[in-house]
Amino acid sequence: MRKGVFGAVIAAAAIAIAVPAVAQSPNDTIAARVAKMKELGAASGAITAYVRENKGTPADMVKAGETMQGLALQIPTWFPKGTGDGDPGVTKNRAKMDIWAKFDDFSKAATALRAEADAFVAAARSGDREKITAAAATLGPKGCGGCHTPFRAPQS
């Protein structure tokens, strides 16, 4: 009896590891990706505070940039088909249906964020505030805004 439950748990875990997106309901996927976006938002918030208010250190900037490096190329996997704002049975969210009409462009926007994050981390490692500010000036608008402008609907 006990063994049976345990086995089932292991089997479930194995499935979850193999096909994370499919194992989740669309609404769980949306909740999970919003949490991931918030991680990006927190990293980006640290950078904004450094640039605009001189808060934090270059080491903090390396960390924030690395968070983005780690997540950027994963973004397209957070958007399986059937999880858009307008898909049947899906909670209100901000993912425009255009994401799936132009999935190549969407993926390119994620790659663009990765390139921006790479450049930002290099600048942050130099420790030079001017270089960091210059890299941040394109990181946000191109890396994040470059995808939010075509693919994310405003908050409602």
């Binding site: 980006s44 918030g45 904004t48 946000g140 805004g145 402008t149 075509p150 693919f151």
Partner: peptide, 11 residues
């Protein structure tokens, strides 16, 4: 396009 929380406007 960056708001004070680190999000970037879209649309």
């Amino acid at each position: 396009g960056g708001n004070p929380d680190g999000d970037y406007v879209g649309g």
